[in-house]
Design a protein around this nucleic acid. Structure first.
Lengths: 125, 125
DNA sequence: TTAAACCTTGACCTCGACGTCAAGGCAACG
DNA sequence: CGTTGCCTTGACGTCGAGGTCAAGGTTTAA
């Protein structure tokens, strides 16, 4: 399939696919007229990238998964480097959750204090 | 005081202070040689900006607080627009917390599955 | 006198993941 | 033959909050 169809089926844009290629994440055969030609495997690879991005991984973080798939493994996370990315990302998410809980508490405190000093602006409205 | 001292006392940089000025958040008298001259009130204002940024508000979100202080109110959050920013930000934090909890769950699931299929990479190491 | 340590404006750089536009080639349909 | 709809590469724009020069003026201490 060509780049437009791959983009549509994967749920992304042609620009993103060309960008992935420029980053070495996606390779493409070229047909005689110079058009990029993709396989079903490429669709799976792009889907993997997108679903990893959806859970907060940066493009760079998806690289181990892509290389794992390219190496012939059945899943992108069948390799140790991918698992390490999971672990690092999980730690990052935990840290962020902690920080956000603190921030939320401070926001609540400030909001309560401000409302107390400025009656008349209550609730959402 | 001049910009260097204000930056040091507030715990930021001169570049940041000039940037705030370019955004209309901070005004400065000029002494005869063209140097910016700041008051203790300015220090309080900058401190307010920094502490609001520390709890996740964008610079633009600090504007109502700055304007509230400039209008002569005792605190930056003594005005309704500031309170609305608190409320909006709180909602954003809540949404993010929810999303992160989901993401965390997906990461855990994927990690567990990957480790099950690829024994030998357990724990942090 | 001259160097150090301030200050000024202006302008380009950073990061991530593309968006958007330009200029042009190729294929198929009417 | 023309137009529509693909495709190509290349290059600049976006966003937030400043960082990092460059080139020069001012003040103070040695």
């Amino acid at each position: 399939m060509r780049i437009g169809e791959l983009a549509q089926r994967a749920g992304t844009t042609t620009r993103a696919l060309r960008f992935y290629e420029s980053q070495g994440l996606l390779g493409a055969r070229r047909s005689s007229n110079g058009y990029r030609e993709y396989s079903e495997d490429d669709l799976r690879l792009v889907s993997e990238i997108l679903s990893l991005q959806a859970i907060g991984l940066s493009l760079e973080d998806t690289r181990p998964f892509v290389e794992c798939l390219r190496a012939g493994h059945p899943a992108g996370d069948s390799c140790a480097p991918s698992i390490e990315v999971y672990q690092r990302k999980l730690a990052e998410v935990d840290a962020l959750l902690d920080r956000l809980a603190v921030v939320r508490g401070e926001l609540l405190t400030k909001l309560a204090g401000a409302i107390a000093r400025h009656p008349g602006t209550c609730g959402v409205e």
